[in-house]
Amino acid sequence: MSYILKTNHLTKVFEGKEVVSSVNMNVQKGEIYGFLGPNGAGKTTVMKMITNLIKPTNGEIEIFGERLTDQSFEVLKRIGSIIEYPIFYDKLTARETLQLHCDYMGYYNQKEIEQVLDMVSLVNTGDKRVKEFSLGMKQRLGIARAIITKPELLILDEPINGLDPQGIKEMRDLFRMLSKEYGITIIVSSHILGEIEQLADTIGVINNGKLIQEISLAQLTRSQTDYIELIVQDIQKTSFLLSEKLLLVNFKLVDDHCIRIYDSTLTPQMISKVLYEHDIEIEAISKKTSTLEEYFLKLVNGGVVNV
């Protein structure tokens, strides 16, 4: 298995507080790695360390098989990034902004500027200055600047900020295309589970500075469990009947009225029949599947999730 990025016990301390704690990331070549966590979880700090914007307090970063140091200039040339909010010279146009970046990076392909502007739907901005751009347009320009040199590794910190639903879909499609057609490895952070779920091959969940779990989306999807959710008034009597009459052991009392039954051999109709025969009033009964949202919330709230 080929890894384009690995971190080893990556740690950062600010003013005596450990904001990133011994993070071990493993990003495979060519994949889209979804870096998922609540606001303030440490995502941006990790990305700043990977791009050499701040130095780790402890731990190491390995990119393209090389340890990242203060002298890793050639390594950093192979990376495109947006960290926090993209900053521009306000008086320049989108084309001038990309031209300036290409000059700085030593990348001389004029056709690429028009192609990338088209990719992010900014090709018709003409002489409009960046200071006149909306937040969403600036975000698109930041993405264009990050991808114009066709980096091997693309690091995107909350890239859909400021975009409307159509823009979010366009960027999602663009990232997939860059991954599949150009072989670019992408690390994309977000606090929005639905976006990561639709985009990532692998998900790394971070909370309170700690990487809780890394898991492939395929493995996570396979682990989702079917169950029957039962809502009743008399939960104690119902629990007794499930155990004694239906011989169930694999069920869980969620609250004072809700029971989840994980035995796949029984149908809602079979359960309802027995409960009605014993005068249990059923308010609702339905077959459901545990969601990625439930999985994520359980992780960040300190629960243990076995996959």
Rank of each mutant, 00 (worst) to 15 (best):
T291L: 15
K128E: 02
R260S: 06
I271E: 04
R78L: 14
I87P: 00
P38M: 11
P38F: 08
K43M: 10
P159K: 00
S290D: 00
G16F: 11
Q224N: 02
L36V: 15
I203K: 01
L153Y: 07
Q213E: 08
M177L: 04
L297N: 13
F64A: 12
I203T: 05
G303V: 11
V205E: 13
F251A: 14
M25W: 06
T57I: 09
H191S: 13
R222V: 09
E66C: 01
G183Q: 13
V75L: 04
L117E: 10
T125Q: 12
I235D: 09
K111H: 02
G183Y: 12
P159T: 05
T225S: 08
T69W: 07
E62A: 02
G30L: 05
A94R: 01
F88W: 05
I147W: 04
L156N: 05
D256A: 06
K138Y: 02
E18K: 03
Q99F: 00
L156C: 12
T267D: 09
E96M: 04
Q198W: 00
G136C: 14
S243T: 00
V232G: 04
E114A: 13
G162N: 07
E158Q: 10
S286L: 11
K252A: 14
P165E: 11
Y295R: 01
E31F: 13
E96Y: 02
K77G: 06
S223T: 12
K273F: 09
I168T: 08
L135K: 11
G194K: 01
G167R: 10
G40T: 11
L241P: 03
K210G: 05
V120I: 10
L174K: 00
A94Y: 05
D173C: 03
S179L: 01
L76W: 15
L76M: 06
N161E: 13
I192M: 12
T225A: 11
K298Y: 01
I87G: 01
L242Q: 00
A284I: 07
I187C: 14
V46C: 11
L153K: 02
L153G: 07
K12C: 05
N52Y: 08
A200G: 06
F14G: 13
I206M: 07
A146E: 08
L10D: 03
T185C: 09
P268A: 07
K287V: 15
Q110K: 15
E132V: 13
